[in-house]
Amino acid sequence: MIRSADLPLDMAPVVAFEDRYGAGFVDPWHAHDRAQLSFALSGVLTVNTDDASFVLPPNRAVWIPPQMNHQTICRSEVVFQVIYIDPRFDAEGKACRVFEVSPLLRALIGEVATFDCHYEMEGREASIVRLLLDEVDRMPSVPVHAELPSDRRLRRVCEAILADPGDTRDIDYWAKHAGMARRTFTRSFREETGMGLATWRRQVRVMEAASRIAAGESITTVAYDVGYDSPSAFTAMFHRTFGATPSAYCRR
Protein backbone atom coordinates (compact mmCIF):
# COMPACT_ATOMS: atom_id res chain seq x y z
CA MET A 1 0.00 0.00 0.00
CA ILE A 2 1.43 3.39 -1.03
CA ARG A 3 1.30 6.32 1.38
CA SER A 4 1.70 10.01 0.58
CA ALA A 5 5.10 10.13 2.29
CA ASP A 6 6.32 7.47 -0.16
CA LEU A 7 5.49 9.48 -3.29
CA PRO A 8 8.49 10.83 -5.25
CA LEU A 9 8.96 14.57 -5.70
CA ASP A 10 9.14 14.22 -9.48
CA MET A 11 5.82 12.32 -9.78
CA ALA A 12 3.38 12.79 -12.66
CA PRO A 13 0.95 15.75 -12.52
CA VAL A 14 -1.95 13.53 -11.40
CA VAL A 15 -1.32 10.54 -9.12
CA ALA A 16 -3.56 8.36 -6.95
CA PHE A 17 -3.05 5.82 -4.18
CA GLU A 18 -5.03 3.94 -1.54
CA ASP A 19 -4.53 4.35 2.20
CA ARG A 20 -5.98 3.06 5.47
CA TYR A 21 -6.17 4.50 9.00
CA GLY A 22 -7.62 3.27 12.29
CA ALA A 23 -10.54 4.74 14.20
CA GLY A 24 -9.60 7.91 16.06
CA PHE A 25 -6.62 8.76 13.84
CA VAL A 26 -6.16 12.51 13.38
CA ASP A 27 -4.11 13.92 10.51
CA PRO A 28 -3.14 17.33 11.96
CA TRP A 29 -3.60 20.68 10.23
CA HIS A 30 -1.58 20.92 7.03
CA ALA A 31 -1.78 21.97 3.37
CA HIS A 32 -0.55 20.58 0.03
CA ASP A 33 1.04 22.20 -3.00
CA ARG A 34 -1.39 20.19 -5.13
CA ALA A 35 -5.16 19.93 -5.11
CA GLN A 36 -6.35 16.82 -3.27
CA LEU A 37 -9.34 14.58 -3.86
CA SER A 38 -10.08 12.12 -1.04
CA PHE A 39 -12.64 9.37 -1.65
CA ALA A 40 -13.93 7.19 1.20
CA LEU A 41 -14.24 3.52 0.28
CA SER A 42 -15.31 2.49 3.79
CA GLY A 43 -15.61 4.18 7.16
CA VAL A 44 -16.38 7.82 7.90
CA LEU A 45 -14.01 10.81 7.70
CA THR A 46 -14.44 14.35 8.99
CA VAL A 47 -12.52 17.01 7.09
CA ASN A 48 -12.18 20.44 8.70
CA THR A 49 -10.94 23.57 6.95
CA ASP A 50 -10.54 27.04 8.38
CA ASP A 51 -14.06 27.88 7.19
CA ALA A 52 -16.16 24.70 7.30
CA SER A 53 -16.56 21.11 8.45
CA PHE A 54 -17.40 18.29 6.01
CA VAL A 55 -18.34 14.64 6.61
CA LEU A 56 -17.32 11.86 4.22
CA PRO A 57 -19.23 8.58 4.51
CA PRO A 58 -18.56 5.81 1.96
CA ASN A 59 -18.96 6.77 -1.72
CA ARG A 60 -18.47 10.47 -1.04
CA ALA A 61 -15.41 12.54 -1.98
CA VAL A 62 -14.02 15.92 -0.97
CA TRP A 63 -12.08 18.27 -3.24
CA ILE A 64 -9.46 20.32 -1.36
CA PRO A 65 -7.78 23.11 -3.38
CA PRO A 66 -4.01 23.66 -3.32
CA GLN A 67 -2.62 25.41 -0.23
CA MET A 68 -5.88 25.03 1.73
CA ASN A 69 -5.24 24.36 5.40
CA HIS A 70 -7.18 21.28 6.55
CA GLN A 71 -7.42 18.53 9.17
CA THR A 72 -8.73 14.99 8.78
CA ILE A 73 -10.31 12.92 11.57
CA CYS A 74 -11.12 9.23 11.17
CA ARG A 75 -14.47 8.59 12.86
CA SER A 76 -14.06 4.85 12.32
CA GLU A 77 -11.54 2.59 10.59
CA VAL A 78 -11.22 4.14 7.15
CA VAL A 79 -10.07 2.93 3.74
CA PHE A 80 -9.83 5.72 1.20
CA GLN A 81 -8.25 6.69 -2.09
CA VAL A 82 -6.39 9.97 -2.57
CA ILE A 83 -5.57 11.82 -5.77
CA TYR A 84 -3.04 14.68 -5.90
CA ILE A 85 -3.53 17.04 -8.85
CA ASP A 86 -1.00 19.57 -10.11
CA PRO A 87 -2.47 23.11 -9.88
CA ARG A 88 -2.31 23.33 -13.69
CA PHE A 89 -5.02 20.65 -13.78
CA ASP A 90 -7.12 22.13 -10.97
CA ALA A 91 -10.35 22.39 -12.96
CA GLU A 92 -12.34 22.86 -9.74
CA GLY A 93 -10.83 26.25 -8.91
CA LYS A 94 -10.60 27.48 -5.33
CA ALA A 95 -13.74 26.01 -3.77
CA CYS A 96 -13.66 23.13 -1.31
CA ARG A 97 -16.68 20.89 -1.86
CA VAL A 98 -18.09 17.41 -1.24
CA PHE A 99 -19.84 15.28 -3.86
CA GLU A 100 -21.20 11.78 -4.41
CA VAL A 101 -18.98 9.53 -6.55
CA SER A 102 -20.56 7.99 -9.64
CA PRO A 103 -19.74 4.39 -10.64
CA LEU A 104 -17.71 5.71 -13.59
CA LEU A 105 -15.69 8.11 -11.43
CA ARG A 106 -15.09 5.37 -8.86
CA ALA A 107 -13.70 3.11 -11.59
CA LEU A 108 -11.50 5.89 -12.97
CA ILE A 109 -10.04 6.66 -9.54
CA GLY A 110 -9.28 2.97 -9.04
CA GLU A 111 -7.60 2.76 -12.44
CA VAL A 112 -5.42 5.84 -11.90
CA ALA A 113 -4.34 4.34 -8.55
CA THR A 114 -2.70 1.49 -10.52
CA PHE A 115 -0.53 3.87 -12.59
CA ASP A 116 3.18 4.20 -11.97
CA CYS A 117 3.99 7.59 -10.39
CA HIS A 118 6.16 8.52 -13.40
CA TYR A 119 3.76 7.75 -16.26
CA GLU A 120 3.81 10.00 -19.33
CA MET A 121 0.98 12.50 -19.82
CA GLU A 122 0.14 11.07 -23.22
CA GLY A 123 -1.48 7.92 -24.54
CA ARG A 124 -3.90 5.79 -22.51
CA GLU A 125 -2.98 7.10 -19.05
CA ALA A 126 -3.37 10.73 -20.08
CA SER A 127 -6.78 10.02 -21.64
CA ILE A 128 -8.03 8.36 -18.46
CA VAL A 129 -6.76 11.23 -16.29
CA ARG A 130 -8.48 13.81 -18.49
CA LEU A 131 -11.73 11.87 -18.31
CA LEU A 132 -11.40 11.58 -14.51
CA LEU A 133 -10.94 15.35 -14.13
CA ASP A 134 -13.92 15.99 -16.42
CA GLU A 135 -16.07 13.64 -14.31
CA VAL A 136 -15.00 15.34 -11.07
CA ASP A 137 -16.00 18.69 -12.55
CA ARG A 138 -19.49 17.48 -13.46
CA MET A 139 -20.33 15.74 -10.15
CA PRO A 140 -23.06 17.70 -8.28
CA SER A 141 -22.10 18.95 -4.84
CA VAL A 142 -23.70 17.60 -1.67
CA PRO A 143 -24.97 20.81 -0.03
CA VAL A 144 -24.62 19.63 3.57
CA HIS A 145 -21.71 21.13 5.47
CA ALA A 146 -21.30 23.42 8.44
CA GLU A 147 -19.72 26.85 8.08
CA LEU A 148 -17.27 27.59 10.90
CA PRO A 149 -16.85 31.06 12.42
CA SER A 150 -13.51 32.82 12.68
CA ASP A 151 -14.29 34.27 16.14
CA ARG A 152 -12.50 31.98 18.61
CA ARG A 153 -15.33 32.16 21.14
CA LEU A 154 -17.93 31.08 18.58
CA ARG A 155 -15.54 28.52 17.14
CA ARG A 156 -15.24 26.93 20.59
CA VAL A 157 -19.03 26.54 20.71
CA CYS A 158 -19.17 25.03 17.21
CA GLU A 159 -16.40 22.55 17.95
CA ALA A 160 -18.25 21.38 21.08
CA ILE A 161 -21.46 20.82 19.08
CA LEU A 162 -19.59 19.04 16.29
CA ALA A 163 -18.13 16.70 18.89
CA ASP A 164 -21.62 15.93 20.27
CA PRO A 165 -24.42 16.84 17.81
CA GLY A 166 -27.03 15.32 20.17
CA ASP A 167 -26.33 17.92 22.86
CA THR A 168 -29.63 19.71 23.61
CA ARG A 169 -28.37 22.62 25.74
CA ASP A 170 -30.01 25.92 24.77
CA ILE A 171 -28.68 29.18 23.40
CA ASP A 172 -28.33 30.71 26.86
CA TYR A 173 -25.89 27.97 27.83
CA TRP A 174 -23.83 28.42 24.66
CA ALA A 175 -23.75 32.20 24.97
CA LYS A 176 -22.39 31.79 28.50
CA HIS A 177 -19.94 29.14 27.25
CA ALA A 178 -18.66 31.71 24.74
CA GLY A 179 -18.47 34.42 27.39
CA MET A 180 -20.91 36.64 25.48
CA ALA A 181 -24.27 38.25 26.16
CA ARG A 182 -27.12 36.35 24.50
CA ARG A 183 -27.95 39.18 22.08
CA THR A 184 -24.31 39.63 21.09
CA PHE A 185 -23.87 35.89 20.68
CA THR A 186 -26.98 35.59 18.49
CA ARG A 187 -25.99 38.51 16.26
CA SER A 188 -22.36 37.46 15.93
CA PHE A 189 -23.21 33.82 15.20
CA ARG A 190 -25.55 34.78 12.38
CA GLU A 191 -23.06 37.24 10.93
CA GLU A 192 -20.28 34.64 10.89
CA THR A 193 -22.20 31.54 9.72
CA GLY A 194 -25.13 33.02 7.80
CA MET A 195 -27.69 31.30 10.05
CA GLY A 196 -28.91 31.08 13.63
CA LEU A 197 -27.56 28.56 16.13
CA ALA A 198 -30.65 26.30 15.90
CA THR A 199 -30.40 26.06 12.10
CA TRP A 200 -26.65 25.52 12.24
CA ARG A 201 -27.02 22.75 14.82
CA ARG A 202 -29.73 21.10 12.69
CA GLN A 203 -27.27 21.14 9.76
CA VAL A 204 -24.64 19.46 11.92
CA ARG A 205 -27.13 16.83 13.05
CA VAL A 206 -28.14 15.94 9.51
CA MET A 207 -24.47 15.69 8.51
CA GLU A 208 -23.83 13.34 11.41
CA ALA A 209 -26.96 11.30 10.72
CA ALA A 210 -26.33 10.91 6.99
CA SER A 211 -22.77 9.75 7.54
CA ARG A 212 -23.72 7.19 10.21
CA ILE A 213 -26.67 5.83 8.23
CA ALA A 214 -24.50 5.51 5.13
CA ALA A 215 -22.02 3.55 7.26
CA GLY A 216 -24.78 1.07 8.18
CA GLU A 217 -25.95 2.18 11.63
CA SER A 218 -29.55 1.75 12.77
CA ILE A 219 -31.84 4.65 11.84
CA THR A 220 -33.55 4.54 15.24
CA THR A 221 -30.25 4.62 17.12
CA VAL A 222 -28.97 7.49 15.01
CA ALA A 223 -32.22 9.45 15.49
CA TYR A 224 -31.91 9.41 19.28
CA ASP A 225 -28.14 9.93 19.27
CA VAL A 226 -28.37 13.17 17.28
CA GLY A 227 -30.97 14.63 19.62
CA TYR A 228 -34.42 13.77 18.23
CA ASP A 229 -37.26 12.66 20.49
CA SER A 230 -38.61 10.11 18.00
CA PRO A 231 -37.58 8.37 14.77
CA SER A 232 -40.60 9.93 13.01
CA ALA A 233 -39.47 13.50 13.82
CA PHE A 234 -35.98 12.61 12.63
CA THR A 235 -37.31 11.06 9.41
CA ALA A 236 -39.36 14.19 8.65
CA MET A 237 -36.28 16.41 9.10
CA PHE A 238 -34.13 14.09 7.02
CA HIS A 239 -36.67 14.02 4.20
CA ARG A 240 -36.86 17.84 4.12
CA THR A 241 -33.09 18.03 3.78
CA PHE A 242 -32.34 15.22 1.33
CA GLY A 243 -35.68 14.71 -0.41
CA ALA A 244 -35.67 11.07 0.67
CA THR A 245 -36.32 9.04 3.82
CA PRO A 246 -33.25 7.72 5.69
CA SER A 247 -33.86 4.17 4.40
CA ALA A 248 -34.18 5.38 0.80
CA TYR A 249 -31.04 7.48 1.19
CA CYS A 250 -29.15 4.46 2.49
CA ARG A 251 -30.27 2.31 -0.45
CA ARG A 252 -29.26 5.04 -2.89
Results as ranks from 00 to 15, higher is better:
residue 139 M to F: 00
residue 135 E to T: 12
residue 156 R to Y: 04
residue 177 H to D: 07
residue 163 A to G: 14
residue 161 I to C: 06
residue 139 M to R: 15
residue 169 R to L: 01
residue 152 R to G: 00
residue 177 H to E: 10
residue 167 D to E: 11
residue 133 L to E: 13
residue 165 P to G: 06
residue 134 D to C: 00
residue 176 K to N: 13
residue 162 L to M: 13
residue 148 L to I: 13
residue 171 I to L: 12
residue 164 D to E: 14
residue 162 L to Q: 14
residue 166 G to H: 06
residue 162 L to H: 12
residue 164 D to R: 15
residue 167 D to N: 15
residue 147 E to N: 09
residue 172 D to Y: 02
residue 148 L to C: 10
residue 128 I to C: 06
residue 134 D to M: 04
residue 163 A to I: 03
residue 144 V to P: 00
residue 146 A to S: 15
residue 176 K to V: 01
residue 158 C to A: 15
residue 137 D to F: 02
residue 158 C to K: 04
residue 127 S to Q: 14
residue 171 I to D: 12
residue 132 L to H: 05
residue 142 V to A: 12
residue 139 M to G: 11
residue 167 D to R: 04
residue 127 S to K: 14
residue 156 R to W: 02
residue 171 I to H: 05
residue 173 Y to N: 11
residue 129 V to W: 02
residue 176 K to G: 13
residue 169 R to G: 01
residue 141 S to G: 04
residue 157 V to E: 10
residue 136 V to H: 05
residue 165 P to D: 06
residue 161 I to P: 02
residue 135 E to I: 03
residue 166 G to Q: 09
residue 174 W to H: 10
residue 133 L to H: 08
residue 145 H to S: 13
residue 132 L to A: 14
residue 161 I to K: 13
residue 146 A to P: 05
residue 162 L to S: 09
residue 162 L to P: 07
residue 172 D to M: 04
residue 141 S to K: 07
residue 174 W to R: 10
residue 155 R to P: 06
residue 165 P to Q: 06
residue 154 L to E: 10
residue 166 G to W: 01
residue 130 R to Y: 09
residue 175 A to Y: 01
residue 145 H to E: 07
residue 156 R to H: 11
residue 142 V to R: 12
residue 130 R to F: 09
residue 171 I to W: 03
residue 140 P to H: 07
residue 155 R to E: 10
residue 127 S to P: 00
residue 172 D to L: 08
residue 148 L to T: 12
residue 167 D to L: 04
residue 142 V to S: 15
residue 139 M to I: 03
residue 153 R to P: 00
residue 167 D to S: 07
